Computed example of a mutant assay.
Amino acid sequence: MRAPRAPRVWFEILLIAVSYYVYSLIRNSVPEHEDKALAHADDIWAFQAKLGLAFEDSINHAVDGVHWLVVSMNYYYSTLHYVITIAVFVWLYRKHPGRYGAVRLTLAVTTFAALIGYYLYPLAPPRLMTDTVFIDTVQVHGTWGSTSSGNLANVSNQYAAMPSMHTGWSLWCGITIVMLAKAPWARILGALYPMATIFVIMATANHFWMDAVGGMICLAFGYAAAYAWYGKSVYQLPQQPAVLAKAPA
């Protein structure tokens, strides 16, 4: 069970489909306690203000003043979260099959930890807070494809902001690319991707910076679980799985 092995494409596609379905089912079935979620948002905003680190509204307003930029960020938020993650999975499958299962386990545990956070601590994103100066950039600029507006808002839990899986998944992608890619330009892009994502989630008023910290903690738990299972860093496993010799008849 702990030995690196070559992934099978049909099993991986089925596993990803089932995992995402279960993730969505659990995430969106969490009771949407609006009052509690809004109260938690007020608490976090007040706590950040006490620290002198309540700056998301300034970023939100500055970006909203540049139409092409804020629209680009809206599409970034609603698409790259999935596109880049799938692309990294495909790259791992093709180039690093011996590490694929371990790195996949890291993300799976990270996402499971996030589900616990969604259930125990419903949190409204800044854009849904009442009596604040935050701008809902999707609503204002009519961006398509976001789960925060339109028909998708009715089937997606709008109070699952803590922890931020945009942060957790993008950081997983970035670390994986930096650790395993050979091309310097790829490593640079890998390092920039999670930083850009954290900026985008704050600029579009979808998350507080504390949500990003929550995503990082979940990812750290995911790496720790994979390390405990394999006995070493997932990136230290062999690139290619060992080929088991066929026993003689």
Results as ranks from 00 to 15, higher is better:
residue 14 L to C: 10
residue 195 M to T: 08
residue 14 L to G: 10
residue 120 L to M: 15
residue 221 F to Q: 12
residue 188 I to W: 13
residue 198 I to N: 04
residue 142 G to N: 11
residue 222 G to M: 01
residue 210 M to F: 14
residue 178 V to I: 13
residue 239 Q to L: 13
residue 28 N to F: 04
residue 227 Y to N: 12
residue 137 T to S: 09
residue 128 L to V: 06
residue 148 S to L: 07
residue 197 T to R: 00
residue 81 H to N: 13
residue 95 K to N: 07
residue 75 Y to H: 14
residue 109 V to D: 06
residue 61 H to Y: 10
residue 43 D to A: 14
residue 96 H to Y: 03
residue 180 L to Y: 00
residue 181 A to P: 00
residue 2 R to V: 11
residue 154 N to F: 12
residue 77 Y to N: 05
residue 164 S to N: 09
residue 44 I to P: 00
residue 58 S to Q: 15
residue 129 M to G: 11
residue 185 W to H: 14
residue 114 A to N: 10
residue 61 H to M: 07
residue 113 A to M: 14
residue 178 V to K: 05
residue 16 I to Q: 03
residue 152 L to Y: 12
residue 107 L to V: 05
residue 129 M to Y: 06
residue 185 W to F: 15
residue 33 H to C: 11
residue 51 L to H: 05
residue 211 D to E: 13
residue 183 A to E: 09
residue 1 M to L: 13
residue 209 W to E: 08
residue 16 I to E: 03
residue 163 P to M: 09
residue 122 P to D: 02
residue 15 L to F: 04
residue 143 T to D: 10
residue 181 A to C: 12
residue 128 L to P: 02
residue 132 T to D: 05
residue 171 L to P: 00
residue 230 Y to H: 11
residue 116 I to Y: 14
residue 163 P to I: 04
residue 74 N to S: 11
residue 48 Q to V: 09
residue 111 T to C: 09
residue 51 L to P: 03
residue 123 L to Q: 06
residue 157 N to S: 09
residue 85 T to L: 03
residue 30 V to H: 06
residue 201 I to V: 15
residue 127 R to H: 08
residue 58 S to M: 14
residue 224 A to P: 05
residue 195 M to K: 06
residue 105 L to V: 09
residue 211 D to A: 08
residue 132 T to I: 09
residue 72 S to P: 03
residue 177 I to C: 01
residue 92 L to G: 00
residue 229 W to E: 03
residue 21 Y to V: 14
residue 12 E to M: 06
residue 170 S to P: 03
residue 38 L to A: 04
residue 173 C to Q: 02
residue 42 D to K: 09
residue 218 C to D: 08
residue 142 G to F: 07
residue 146 S to W: 01
residue 134 F to P: 00
residue 144 W to R: 12
residue 161 A to L: 07
residue 10 W to N: 10
residue 216 M to D: 12
residue 81 H to D: 08
residue 81 H to P: 01
residue 64 D to L: 02
residue 226 A to M: 05
residue 184 P to F: 04
residue 80 L to W: 10
residue 97 P to H: 04
residue 213 V to R: 07
residue 225 A to S: 15
residue 203 A to M: 05
residue 240 Q to D: 04
residue 117 G to D: 02
residue 127 R to Q: 08
residue 57 D to G: 13
residue 84 I to H: 01
residue 13 I to W: 01
residue 197 T to W: 01
residue 9 V to S: 01
residue 122 P to E: 02
residue 153 A to L: 08
residue 22 V to A: 14
residue 217 I to D: 08
residue 162 M to T: 06
residue 134 F to Y: 12
residue 214 G to T: 07
residue 108 A to Y: 03
residue 55 F to E: 12
residue 144 W to A: 15
residue 155 V to I: 15
residue 56 E to T: 10
residue 69 L to M: 14
residue 13 I to P: 02
residue 139 Q to P: 07
